[in-house]
Design a protein around this nucleic acid. Sequence first.
RNA 1: GCGGAUGUGGUGUAGUGGUAGCACUCGAGCCUUCCAAGCUCGCUGCGCGGGUUCGACUCCCGCCAUCCGCACCA
Length: 573
Amino acid sequence: MPDISTFSEERLERLQGLLKRRGVILPAFEIHGGSKGLFDFGPVGGRLRNKIQQEWLHHWLSQGDIVEISSPTITPYSVLEASGHVSEFTDFMADCKHCGEASRADTLIEKQVLDADALSIGNLQSIFSKLSPKCPDCGQSTWSDIRAQNLMFNTSIGVGSSGKAGFLRPETAQGMFTLFPSLYRHFREKLPFGAVQVGKGYRNEISPRQGMIRLREFNMAELEYFIDPDTTYTYDFGSMNTQLLVLISDEHGELKMSVGDALEQGIIRHPTVAHFMAQTYNFLHHVGINDSFLRFRQHKKNEMAHYAQDCWDAEIFGSFGWVECVGIAHRGCFDLEAHETYTGKQLRARREFETPQTQVIDGWAMNMATSGPAFRQYAQEVNSMILDLPADCTFPIEITIEDGTVLTIMEEHVKRDQREVKVSGVWFTPHVVEPAFGIDRIIWHILDHAYDETEKDGEEYTYFRFKPSVAPIDVCVLPLFEKDGMDKLSKEIHKKLLSQTGLFATYDGSGSIGRRYARADEIGVPYCITIDHQTIEDSTFTIRHRDDGSQERINFDGLLRYIGSIRQSKPIL
RNA sequence: GCGGAUGUGGUGUAGUGGUAGCACUCGAGCCUUCCAAGCUCGCUGCGCGGGUUCGACUCCCGCCAUCCGCACCA
């Protein structure tokens, strides 16, 4: 296992060379000159990615109240406008004509203008021109016109004039929110429940850097877990009760404690957030992230979105330093409410009272026959204001509606409303806790942590020490020599292995046996089986373990049992 | 997007205004009774496009990509 000083630049270069040479991760479209921020998973990496995604799905689906969905990557404009992404992912840039440096226009005037980042481009331009801020780089104030820079990929859904605006999704989460009614029905209208989705996300980054850390097309895996804000949830942290985590708390700095203790002491502010932190730790550990390079960092109150109650990032240390790989956010009711407001479709859950409550209504209602003609276009608005009037209110009364118009309400416009209604429950917007995983970043760190440079007889020798559950290739079949029937028998055994669901085996017959072991170690194959003369006689062969090179004799069924028992080992809950 | 550096087989490198070597890898064969052995033979390359030139991998320009700063972003 590497320690922190292992992650040198030279090691990183050798690792990247290996990843390319052995077909794990490579720059995409390289024969065409390549394209920034896009990567291929090659013959080995493709399998690795799939296995990690499968492990991730299994990890959450096994919780029992979580389902998997899949929604389109092409997303209509309105969805992302409702979610706030259109404004969040648009930067208004101005270029300094003197030094050429581009700056965000809203940032330059935010000290003088409140909510500068919420201005439309037109307003921003006029205020910006008036204030004419200095360029932070050269101090001059000669600016180009402000241009909008959208970090989402634009597209058109449909052709020609009938096409409507859309984007490639910048995250998968919106699919879970827009599917809320179906999820609610599926779970028989009972909270809590969740939905996961594994898929691609797209962000047109200005400057993708650092290999797989910032990509323009990336693999993400998100979970939206819907809860009742008025229920106090308790979780059994199981083995995590004693597992100490490194927490970087907003208020207390770096701590080492269990999730349970952190929750009790109010460092983690919500039990569901604590639950998902524990589960995230389990998952990352299970797929091969080294625990000593894993920490959770709490967002500072001022860097959290206003609706968020608590937010933690799982950060993993590797060749690029500490990198945020998972975000666990309590998002309150923000997302469902945003879509509800935008579409008018109710996205709520119902909480039934234990005993129906009687509500006494004592106030005023609008008399439509008289107030309709009297207030015309204001009637709707007046109606809602009348409902809020106290019971002892006397008429006439003056009210001011939103656009400043003052209206006088006479007694004949209203009628007394006194009645009792039975209420059996209440509709509310569920809160949501969202663990969002950057799969590519996690894959990177699995590779970075599993990559082990050693020496063998004075020669460099490298391993990927993948956990068997994520190793791209489960077994490599090697004939001791490709003759005397060993080659034929090896190919038969290889074929038999491939017919096993979920198992992937390769065959390698070229070069000396030692060379072939080395090739397998280099891409992290956990087990090699070698077919020799004895196999022809008694159908047994040797299984060699990657990490210590030890061998034992085994037959085909024994091998399957052996691999099966390893693959069944599940993360502790 | 700005500034600087870089770009030669799969990987790592040498080199020249007259189209390229080396090492490892890879493939075929021989040999070999379990950890990169040996021998023979072989495959694969000057990032892309334009210009200068009789001739460009080499000089010039543009683009693309990579790395490092800045900015942006989580």
